[in-house]
């Protein structure tokens, strides 16, 4: 465990060294500047539009940054032969995967709540200037937890692909593919229940069902609209979504560990 934590610490340090924090800071400042602009463009329900924008920005910024960070650090590990060095050390390979994972997730956690904390005063301030809809500050931060679980799941998938292949570009496309499928399968399942969907060939329906049960259902973590409009999912469904995310992440991570144990590192 000590080694895992040490590796996690190194990962966070490396992430900070990548200057990603500065990029996020500048991007977040620009996003904050966009708040008054959006305010003037909005006809009704200003607090909802501003909260929607801030949460979407957080979502987008963290996803993009984490994807590049995971891929970049993995590429660096390969280029500088760090991976070979780490593996030659008396630590278990699984510690490397767990350590990297914990480091990335911890860094993502800092990023998410850092962005939310920076944006919330501006959203709250401009919402107060035209309070024609409620602003749920509790939901605002609760969304951070859902985003964190989604990012953790995607990081685990990225590590899984990196265990499978040494080409980061392949891993990158793999993660992007999982992201796209993960966010659309819920809609596709909905479509299958409609009249047109019912008439689809049985084979196509079977393929869709299989794909649906293999890929993660990322739509469960897209609770922005529900939170903005206070269209509360009840406590139980929130809890079950989070539990689903944690379980799926653990399984993918274990799969990554198993594959990484067998990975040939040149």
């Amino acid at each position: 465990m000590k080694r895992v934590i040490e590796l996690a610490r190194i990962t966070v340090k490396q992430a900070i060294k990548e200057r990603s924090f500065y990029v996020i800071l500048i991007a977040t400042l620009l996003a904050v500047l966009a708040v008054p602009v959006l305010y003037s463009f909005t006809m009704f329900e200003v607090p909802r539009v501003l909260a929607g924008f801030a949460l979407s920005y957080t979502n987008f910024a963290v996803l993009i940054l984490m994807l590049f960070l995971v891929m970049n650090l993995s590429q660096t590990d390969l280029d500088r032969k760090t991976l070979q060095y780490v593996i030659s050390l008396p630590i278990r390979r699984r510690d490397y995967v767990f350590g990297r994972f914990l480091g990335f997730v911890f860094f993502a956690c800092i990023l998410i709540f850092f962005i939310l904390a920076i944006t919330v005063p501006f959203v709250a301030l401009f919402s107060r200037m035209r309070p024609d809809a409620p602003f749920y500050i509790g939901y605002y931060f609760l969304y951070g937890v859902f985003l964190l679980i989604e990012v953790a799941l995607l990081v685990a998938i990225a590590l899984l692909f990196l265990s499978l292949t040494s080409r980061t570009i392949v891993s990158m496309f793999g993660v992007a593919g999982c992201y796209i499928v993960g966010h659309t399968m819920d809609e596709v399942a909905e479509f299958l229940r409609t009249g047109t969907g019912m008439n689809m060939p049985v084979f196509s329906k079977a393929v869709i069902q299989v794909v649906r049960y293999i890929f993660p259902n990322l739509a469960l973590f897209d609770v922005k609209t529900a939170f903005i409009y206070g269209k509360g999912m009840d406590g139980m469904s929130l809890f079950l979504s989070l539990l689903y995310g944690v379980l799926y992440t653990v399984i993918v991570l274990l799969l990554a560990v198993v594959l990484f144990e067998k990975k040939e590192v040149y």
Partner: peptide
């Protein structure tokens, strides 16, 4: 409209706006 929703991924609110 359904494709517009699919292709919006997590950003359907921003797309609507």
């Amino acid at each position: 409209p359904s494709f517009e929703k699919w292709s919006g991924f997590e950003f359907t609110f921003l797309k609507a706006f």
